[in-house]
């Protein structure tokens, strides 16, 4: 509880009206809560570690023995121990979830498919980018701009969004993704494609087999 009364009272009495400066807020880098609420989040131990490493003074403020005792307040001992139990449970759950998400990400594939449209004309479809947190719309725009062709996000037969680009640009798209992830930062504008695992890219060709 910051002091609402004092700040509010102080202002009208000043002859020159001044804007009340904002409270400088500090949020936990792990769970984004104000650090005093980390204990209610689902990553308490990580938050604690982070705070101890980054801001030891604040760590003492929130997690020293005195602080722990003081914050018990009016809550009963059982309720407190139940709360701690809950927190531990929540934490384990969140960890399992994060782990599953990571595994899923590792397992997910990006499929660049060259589709023959009309003998010598091709379209290229890119599927699975969204699993790596790529904004499909932005990526489609990027492709369209880069290759000066049409590029759009469409739903395929299975109802999954994919990017369709006119022309045979499968190799170019592959190169772009590699470039975006080569660690050099890549060219400007390729940020959209970062975080895609290059090893998980699969190049497929529909209908006739030809050398890539």
């Amino acid at each position: 509880m910051a002091t609402p009364a004092t700040t509010a009272d102080a202002t009208p009495s000043q002859p020159e009206k001044q804007a009340i400066p904002p409270v400088q807020m500090f949020y936990c880098g792990v769970c984004t809560f104000p650090p005093e609420y980390c204990e209610f989040g689902d990553s308490l131990s990580k938050c604690k570690e982070w705070l101890q490493a980054q801001h030891p003074d604040l760590y003492d403020k929130y997690y020293s023995d005195v602080a722990l005792k003081a914050k018990l307040g009016t809550i009963s001992q059982e309720a407190q121990s139940k709360l701690e139990e809950d927190t531990a449970k929540k934490e384990a759950k969140a960890e399992a979830k994060a782990d599953a998400a990571r595994k899923k990400k590792l397992a997910s594939q990006v499929i660049i498919k060259r589709i023959e449209r009309n003998k010598r004309k091709y379209i290229t479809s890119v599927r699975g980018l969204e699993a790596f947190g790529v904004d499909l719309k932005k990526a489609a725009k990027l492709f369209a701009q880069r290759f000066a062709t049409g590029g759009s996000v469409t739903k395929n037969a299975a109802g999954i969004d994919e990017i369709v680009v006119q022309g045979d640009v499968s190799q170019e798209i592959y190169d772009m993704i590699v470039e975006a992830n080569d660690g050099k930062g890549g060219k400007k504008g390729l940020d959209v494609l970062k975080d895609v695992l290059v090893d998980n890219i699969e190049m497929v060709e529909e209908k006739r087999k030809k050398d890539e």
Binding site: M1, P4, T7, I20, P22, M25, Y37, F40, G73, T74
Partner: peptide, 22 residues
Amino acid sequence: FHKYPFILPHVRVDRGAIRFLL
């Protein structure tokens, strides 16, 4: 609101309620 905590009236909840609120 965290930056300007005076703009709304306050009430305070007890500690037991926090986790339900969250």
